[in-house]
């Protein structure tokens, strides 16, 4: 599997760990950081949220496809929307559910608004950037997948994900690891097929296709709708772009979307520190040995004077 080029750059440069010769490469790598922009032919999903009716079929499809544990309540039980997790939050992705549907009561709208939540499969994923065992991979097909065999369970990816997606299997005592949506990579995407949720949706809420086509489609749709849709494709630019994108006729901030994530990928906030690392490794030894020589010169002079 091919990894992000930038990652290979940095890997090559830092794998040597303390090797001084690494600076040149690291600088190049950091210059590349945040400008990757995704694989050219990667796939994506466009979510037309106006169509979602909250039937939870996508959740059921995900459960079956991914072989997830039995849910707490049936997938056709709509009391699910009234459940509240920690701090009164709406249901979110968990170790048992890689996608969930949230219901929003929007002012001035007769029927409730539904929002499907799952991994957005960032072009430059924060989870991938933060993983110190290199468990994550952004595949050329667009999915952000992970290797559960090397996950240590540090949960930094949960910190780094701007969309609060990865979930830790808190219930496992023996082998707790991170779990999340992989866009059905192993069973479907790899073979060119759409994720199970996309296929199962009775309303055609989700369109599967090449990401760049979907971006164009989204804008056409917004344009042709004559002002029905909000003129924003969420995910086109957010945190460097995501493979899953959303259009809506309700302002995104009213339906739980984080509008403060910005357009810069997560790596761009971290790379300054990463660039500083080789500098410290290279400069400190000479600098502090120099300090040592300066600080102890008096003692040395005294010694030689005595001699």
């Amino acid at each position: 599997m091919k990894k992000l080029n930038r990652r290979n750059f940095i890997k090559g440069s830092l794998a040597g760990g303390l090797a001084a010769a690494a600076t040149g490469k690291a600088t190049k790598a950091d210059a590349a950081g945040g400008t990757f922009g995704g694989y050219p032919d990667s796939m994506g999903v466009l979510v037309d949220m106006t169509k979602c009716i909250g039937c939870r079929t996508c959740e059921a499809a995900c459960n079956v496809e991914q072989g997830l544990p039995e849910p707490d309540i049936p997938f056709d039980d709509y009391s699910f929307f009234d459940q509240h997790g920690h701090g009164g939050e709406k249901p979110r992705t968990t170790e048992k559910a890689y996608t969930v549907v949230n219901r929003y009561e929007v002012e001035g709208r007769e029927s409730p608004f539904f929002r499907k939540v799952q991994c957005n499969h960032c072009q430059e994923p924060g989870c991938l950037t933060s993983c110190f065992v290199n468990a994550y991979t952004k595949t050329p097909e667009g999915a952000v997948i992970y290797n559960p065999k090397v996950c240590v369970g540090c949960r930094t990816c949960m910190i780094a994900c701007p969309f609060y997606i990865p979930a830790y299997s808190f219930s496992s005592a023996i082998n707790p690891i991170i779990k999340k949506c992989i866009m059905c990579y192993d069973t479907r995407l790899k073979f060119g097929r759409p994720p199970a949720c996309v296929e199962a949706c009775p309303q055609g809420v989700m369109t599967f296709g090449k990401r760049k086509d979907l971006v164009a489609q989204a804008h056409t749709k917004i344009e042709e709708s004559g002002g029905k849709y909000i003129d924003h494709v969420y995910g086109e630019k957010e945190v460097g772009g995501t493979s899953w994108m959303y259009i809506s006729d309700v302002p995104f901030e009213e339906i739980g979307f984080n509008m403060h994530v910005g357009n810069a990928p997560i790596i761009s906030y971290v790379k300054d520190f990463l660039a500083m690392v080789p500098m410290v490794l290279i400069i400190w030894p000479a600098l502090f040995t120099g300090f040592h020589l300066l600080a102890t010169r008096k003692a040395k002079t005294d010694e030689s004077n005595k001699a």
Partner: peptide, 18 residues
């Protein structure tokens, strides 16, 4: 079976989550 409902519904009383 797909929706885990009817005769395939999860046993009640364990809808706890956390």
């Amino acid at each position: 079976k797909f929706y885990r409902t009817g005769k395939y519904a999860p046993a009640p009383g364990k809808a706890s989550g956390h």
